[in-house]
């Protein structure tokens, strides 16, 4: 069955159609979200939010973009919302830690993240790269994650981000330069990896 038909069926409340759509996109959504939030449990929660949003806003889908673009956009927005919320919580935790002498330490620190799809020999280096990805500005992060974690083509990324392929290319260039700059900080850690 065509995905566009599925969406119109879901809009009518058809649960089977929703299950089919879920099966088609579950890994794409989860993988994209995981690239942003870098935590399996949180990624599952955000991915659930994405599918709930898909179910609720099916009636609003006008078909101006492809279904996959629409679902990717929801996944990206939910992930960015989650990261913003986390950042706010982190700031609040910092203020709390100023008044709480017991802990002293900051809560919600970025933990070491290992993407489950990374080749074994690249695990440690990829963990450092993900730390660096986390510091990128939102648009560069989106372009980088869609291109290198989700492995979308330049054209697909441009469609999802509603930009021209040239603009995406420029974002990727800046993201790569930013990452290389950020990696300077982690260079001393390389010996621990060897």
């Amino acid at each position: 069955m065509k995905i566009s038909n599925l969406i119109s069926l879901i809009a009518k409340g058809n649960e089977k159609a929703f299950a089919t759509l879920y099966d088609t996109y579950k890994n794409r959504v989860f993988n994209t979200v995981l690239g942003y939030v870098q935590n399996r449990e949180e990624a599952e929660e955000v991915a659930q939010d994405v599918f709930i949003e898909v179910f609720r806003s099916c009636t609003n889908f006008k078909g101006e973009s492809s279904e996959s673009t629409w679902i990717y956009r929801i996944a990206i927005n939910k992930s960015l919302d989650h990261l913003r919320h986390k950042r706010r919580k982190k700031r609040f935790a910092f203020l709390q830690s100023l008044f709480n002498a017991d802990t002293g330490a900051l809560q919600h620190d970025v933990p070491h993240f290992e993407h489950p799809g990374i080749l074994l020999e690249n695990k440690d280096k990829a963990a450092i790269l993900f730390k660096a990805i986390d510091t990128l500005p939102e648009s560069q992060k989106t372009a980088y994650i869609l291109s290198f974690v989700e492995d979308l083509s330049g054209k697909e990324v441009a469609e999802v981000m509603n930009l021209s392929p040239k603009a995406v290319e420029s974002l990727l260039q800046r993201a790569k330069a930013g990452l290389r700059n950020e990696l300077e900080k982690y260079y001393p850690e390389r010996r621990k990896l060897k």
Partner: peptide, 18 residues
């Protein structure tokens, strides 16, 4: 480090998420 994402596989959604 920059090339460490080469050959990455898509992460699979957890069971029972649906």
């Amino acid at each position: 480090v920059m090339n460490s994402l080469d050959g990455i596989h898509r992460a699979e959604a957890p069971d029972f998420m649906f």
